[in-house]
Design a protein around this nucleic acid. Structure first.
Lengths: 295, 295
DNA sequence: TGCCGACATTGCGTAAAACGCTATATTTGC
DNA sequence: GCAAATATAGCGTTTTACGCAATGTCGGCA
């Protein structure tokens, strides 16, 4: 935006003298004269009454003077606002994660980040990790805390934050169907166990693979969205579930459940930050990304 | 003021697509791209995060979007305001006149003018007509109602509005010093008459000339600024005054004074509108001038 | 009254910039 | 891996902006 016409106008309105005003603006008198003429043609009203000897503001010029002062002030204010924002990163980052992530390591990460970039607002959306990839790919969220999938989609970048074993959990109270010897699984031992599994997502895939590898057909009692809900249901005694251990560690129901020491163990759950590759160029995203990389 | 950068920015911010935005703005995509880049360089902050495939507003872009909408709205508002003012004359005209003028013919003139140009504000300043010329010449007033001087100064235009005889007035009540036979003036008759005259101005000049022509040296009791004050003092019985008859006609004290039928009569007082020639180009001034000419 | 100086404006030649077309590089979706 | 999409850089042309010098006009002053 070229604000010179406004500045030139104001200089002339102040001095009422083309020569002096043009000096103030560091342009030739002819340039100033043409600038004013352009303004007048643009607005289709005369701003100055003038002859070869006198210059005076018209009533419209008086109105325009108010406008010009205002517009210039707003422009300068904008520049200051923006330049302050340029020095210090500011804006908004939306992060999708599970409740557990928001309670555990993510909390520390974001605390540090917030101290370093107080003017970046973080919007935390919690939900089922199974959806996290899709949400990031669709651009609904800037980032997500998500388990590393078997293969990371091309447009996505993934940075591991923590690992956590997937574990079988059973109610802390006794129940007839809880496998007595989880170290040596067998179809008979598992066929009557009511399983509480994720509807979808990596933990479900790993569970399915685990059962399939042992030739076991599990009895699925409930399919749940969100690991935290699995803990709840298991704690209530509805069955046996599979969750990352970190979910357990951050659950208020940890006393109500116990880990079944099954063999073979389930794979580890690699939890990390996930973001569109191209969005890494954004200074805000990059700042958070770098914070993670430092760890 | 070229507002296109703002329009282009807003189009891009809406569509987030250079191709479509450039169509909306009737420019080529490369032009739009350069316009945005210029804005960003000017403000020294990025407004869009973009690669070859995606466009997104930065936090600063969001701020600028608010600014741009606002600035454009104000600009349009200004244009409307000014164009309305262009159709209908608006502004301010200052007029200097005597109290009498403001009470008499000027009132009618301005009433009509106000109906025709309701958006022109008139600022009436009253004072001694003797000063009127100087005030107009100095640019302190746009116009003045003033007696036509013996010779009108070059830079001034004068348009006669009305004529009024200069008259001698005496108190209505009897007083020993009031000339008994004003039709035949003589030094003896006048030498003891306390005269109440203008400090300056045409009426004073004419009075002086009248006395001089008759070889009379008047006894000046008081020199007053403003004809109305002369009527007051005469009405109070302090002496004999010289005022334009029109002042008398508009005075509440008209019953307290009477006109002396002196011979020879004083010249007529030619009262009219006076304005700087060069200011006649101003549409406002011209409108009022034309109104006078029509009469 | 006539001349001089001040000053806004215009003509003109040059410099700069703006514009559109085309080409290019990169990315996405199939 | 290929083809479509798309923001952008290069380039030649057109438009615009700028300053200098000239012009015309208005006040002031002798």
């Amino acid at each position: 935006m070229d604000m010179r016409p406004l500045k030139h106008f104001l200089a002339l309105a102040d001095t009422l003298h083309f020569g002096r005003a043009s000096e103030l603006c560091h342009v030739s008198p002819s340039t100033l004269s043409r600038t004013i003429r352009q303004l007048e043609q643009n607005l289709e009203v005369p701003l100055f009454e003038r002859d070869n000897r006198h210059v005076a503001l018209t009533p419209q010029g008086l109105i325009f003077q108010d406008y010009a002062k205002d517009a210039l002030a707003q422009w300068e204010l904008l520049r200051h606002t923006l330049s302050r924002d340029a020095d210090e990163l500011a804006g908004e980052i939306s992060i999708y994660c599970s409740v557990t992530a928001s309670y555990s390591f993510l909390y520390d990460l974001l605390s540090d980040f917030r101290l370093r970039h107080p003017r970046i607002e973080l919007k935390l959306h919690t939900g089922d990790p199974a959806e996290s990839m899709a949400r990031v790919l669709d651009g609904e969220e800037d980032m997500a805390i998500t388990p590393r999938p078997r293969s990371v989609p091309g447009p996505l970048a993934f940075k591991s934050l923590t690992r956590s074993p997937l574990v079988f959990i059973a109610p802390a109270v006794q129940a007839g169907w809880i496998p007595g010897t989880p170290e040596s699984p067998s179809d008979t031992q598992w066929q009557n166990v009511p399983m509480i599994l994720s509807e979808a997502g990596l933990s479900r895939e790993y569970s399915d693979t685990w059962f399939k590898a042992l030739g076991i057909t599990p009895r699925i009692y409930a399919q749940v969205a969100g690991h935290e809900a699995i803990v709840s249901m298991v704690g209530l005694g509805f069955g046996v579930g599979v969750v990352p251990k970190i979910v357990l560690d951050n659950s208020p129901l940890v006393e109500r459940v116990r880990v079944l020491p099954v063999k073979p163990e389930l794979p580890h759950y690699d939890v990390g930050l996930c973001v569109l590759n191209r969005r890494l160029k954004s200074p805000l995203i990059q700042a958070l990304w770098d914070e993670v990389v430092e760890r």
